Amino acid sequence: MRIILVGSLWLLSTVAAADTLRVGSHLLVSGDSAAQVREALGRPSRVTHHRDRDRAGSARHRRGAAAAKPASESWIYRRDGREITVTLVDGAVTTIQQRP
């Protein structure tokens, strides 16, 4: 029983830490601003802009008014042989992913 509890707590701690990144003395976390990301990581290697569409495939409501969708983009960095992807929505970090 104790092993299951310890294993569960370890799993929860790794999930919670998935959206954090230590860069030198900086710690980037979800909610940080785009300026904080630039300060810690510098200029991204590549930027991808995302466009959300509703299920009908258009960005319009029934009455024809344009739907207000948050601006979203991914900043991709290549550092020390790994790829770091920081996703921002309306200028704030939402996810941080690392790949070897």
Results as ranks from 00 to 15, higher is better:
Thr85Trp: 01
Arg99Ser: 14
Pro100Ala: 12
Met1Pro: 10
Asp52Tyr: 09
Leu88Met: 02
Ser8His: 10
Met1Tyr: 13
Arg78Lys: 03
Trp75Phe: 00
His49Gly: 04
Glu39His: 07
Lys69Asp: 12
Arg2Pro: 07
Leu5Trp: 08
Ala17Gly: 06
Ile76Tyr: 00
Thr48His: 03
Gln98Ile: 11
Leu12Asn: 14
Asp54Ile: 07
Trp10Ile: 12
Gln98Leu: 04
Gly24Asp: 05
Glu83Trp: 02
Arg79His: 06
Ile96Val: 14
Ser72Gln: 14
Arg38Lys: 15
Thr14Glu: 12
Arg53Ile: 15
Met1Asn: 11
Gly57Asn: 14
Arg46Phe: 01
Ala34Gln: 15
Ala17Pro: 00
Ser30Thr: 14
Val23Lys: 00
Ala65Pro: 01
Gly42Cys: 12
Leu41Gln: 07
Val23Cys: 02
Ser74Cys: 05
Pro100His: 13
Ala59Cys: 09
Ile4Tyr: 02
Asp32Met: 00
Val6Leu: 13
Ala34Arg: 13
His49Ile: 00
Gly42Thr: 12
Ile84Pro: 03
Pro44Arg: 03
Pro44Phe: 04
Gly81Ile: 03
Ile4Gln: 08
Leu88Phe: 02
Met1Asp: 12
Gly81His: 01
His26Asp: 11
Trp75Ile: 00
His49Arg: 12
Ser58Val: 13
Asp90Tyr: 12
Ala16Ser: 14
Thr14Asn: 11
Ser13Tyr: 05
Ala59Thr: 14
Ala18Cys: 09
Val89Pro: 04
Ser72Glu: 15
Arg53Lys: 09
Val15Cys: 08
Gly64Asn: 11
Thr85Lys: 04
Pro70His: 08
Arg51Trp: 12
Leu28Glu: 08
Val89Tyr: 09
Pro44Ser: 06
Arg55Asn: 01
Glu73Cys: 05
Val29Gln: 09
Thr85Ser: 09
Arg51Phe: 10
Val6Ile: 10
Glu73Phe: 04
His26Cys: 10
Val86Asn: 06
Gly57Val: 15
Asp90Lys: 03
Ser58His: 08
Arg82Phe: 06
Glu39Gln: 15
Gly91Lys: 03
Leu5Gln: 09
Asp80Pro: 14
Ala17Ile: 02
Ile84Ser: 01
Arg99Ile: 14
Pro44Met: 07
Asp52Gly: 08
Ser74Leu: 10
Arg46Val: 04
Ser13Glu: 13
Val89Met: 08
Arg2Asp: 15
Leu21Met: 04
His61Val: 11
Leu12Glu: 11
Lys69Phe: 15
Asp90Glu: 14
Ala34Lys: 13
Leu27Lys: 08
Pro100Gly: 15
Gly42Gln: 10
Ile76Ser: 01
Asp90Ser: 12
Thr94Tyr: 00
Gly42Asn: 09
Ala16His: 05
Ala65Asn: 09
Pro44Tyr: 03
Ala34Cys: 09
Leu28Asp: 10
Ser30Phe: 03
Val89Gly: 07
His49Cys: 02
Glu73Leu: 09
Ala92Pro: 09
Ser13Pro: 12
Thr87Asp: 09
Arg78His: 11
Leu21Val: 09
Asp32Val: 06
Leu88Ile: 05
Ala56Met: 10
His61Asp: 15
Leu21Tyr: 03
Glu73Asn: 06
Glu83Asn: 01
Gly24Ser: 05
Leu41Trp: 03
Arg46Met: 05
His50Phe: 05
Ala67Phe: 02
Ala68Leu: 13
Arg63Ser: 05
Ala40Thr: 02
Ala16Phe: 08
Trp10Glu: 03
Ala71Met: 07
Ala17Asp: 01
Ile76Asn: 00
